[in-house]
Design a protein around this nucleic acid. Structure first.
Lengths: 195, 195
DNA sequence: AGAGTAATGTGATTTAAGTCACAACTATAA
DNA sequence: TTATAGTTGTGACTTAAATCACATTACTCT
């Protein structure tokens, strides 16, 4: 099935290791395809994040809603990214986040217990996991730095250079909430930019 | 040596696995004790972060200086934490950060190549590493959320509840730069608080 | 012990960004 | 195809926090 081919390629490419036929069967057996339509929820605030999803097609955002009703987008996720609230997923605690499909979404999903199995039994999976952890750590560090040290304009420029796809693919109100800005401020920054 | 005892305890406690005598010898052979006096640098901007340190005693901060000369503290680190710019350490790229001892500092340090060896050869070390990655991911997620969604007051309250030690141990200008505030604003927030 | 440096407090002023309000435009769905 | 909801732009006003300036207090180093 083509979904899985892309997934296998991803694991092999990141890890630099090959998956055996047995490995592939194990993964196919325990990763379940799941489809969400635009605006459906992968995870709702208060629920435990039981599944981690590998995005085959589509996009999603992870966000909170504060007391004033403002949404704060923590993460935007595209094809070949992992989708979960890792805090809730690892610790099995209720999530403070919502994860919503921004476009029709196809994921391959599995549980924490299964992931532990894959890590033990599939060397390529384990190597991929370690590298992904590293990348997340690096990306998070950058994001913290940007949030703390940069002005609104600088954060927008940084986003354009790091994730140009986001600008194309997501509406401005989502981008604004990802950058920690009001949509009006983002609109004004864009106006200055185009000059 | 007592330095290593605390280190071994840490690994065993986090991983839930025991270190064999061989494991311990391997670690002692390749983790080198290093002392820094207050205000000395563990890492300077522009250098590659060749070493990761396990803090046995003391504290440090990871920070950048922007064009206006303002310092932004990304991370504060205490005993039993790991000290490195992970981006530079993993990728061997020049670091954008400085890491400075805030108090006299004792670390056990090792290189990326050695860490790879420990991960392969010491199950307790590998298990510890995976759990630490998880914890970092969770902590970073919280920090991003706080930076993006919370007001100055809320960030200060959150710090008090998450890391009360920080308030005792670090001067206010450092805390302010960690929270992404001017020192004056932090001073005023504290004034309100004590009422 | 005393000079020099670093850390903190506080008022006055400025500024970046948020908020509010409304208009214009663009999807989407019945 | 028209009604409805969602998205974007823009002006007027407000506000949280930064900046500037100076006083006070606490370290630390020889």
């Amino acid at each position: 099935m083509s979904n899985f081919e892309a997934f296998f390629d991803y694991i092999q490419q990141i890890s630099g290791k090959l998956l055996s036929d047995d490995d592939k069967h194990l993964l196919m057996e325990h990763f379940k395809p799941k489809k969400l339509r635009k605006r459906q929820y992968f995870l709702q605030e208060g629920d435990v994040c039981k599944y981690i999803g590998f995005i085959v097609k589509g996009s999603a955002r992870t966000f909170t809603v504060d007391e004033k009703g403002h949404e704060h987008t923590l993460k935007l996720s595209l094809e070949n990214w992992w989708l979960a609230d890792f805090e809730s997923f690892y610790l099995l605690t209720p999530s403070r986040f919502n994860i919503e499909a921004l476009e029709n979404l196809e994921v391959l999903q599995s549980t924490n217990a299964q992931i532990e199995e894959f890590l033990k039994r599939i060397p390529a999976f384990s190597a991929m996991s370690n590298l992904i952890s590293q990348n997340y750590t690096i990306a998070n560090q950058k994001r913290v730095q940007a949030a703390m040290s940069y002005t609104a304009e600088e954060r927008y420029e940084e986003l354009i250079s790091s994730y140009p796809q986001f600008i194309q693919r997501f509406p401005q109100n989502i981008i604004a909430s990802y950058l920690g800005l009001s949509r009006e401020t983002l609109s004004r920054i864009r106006k200055n930019f185009s000059k």
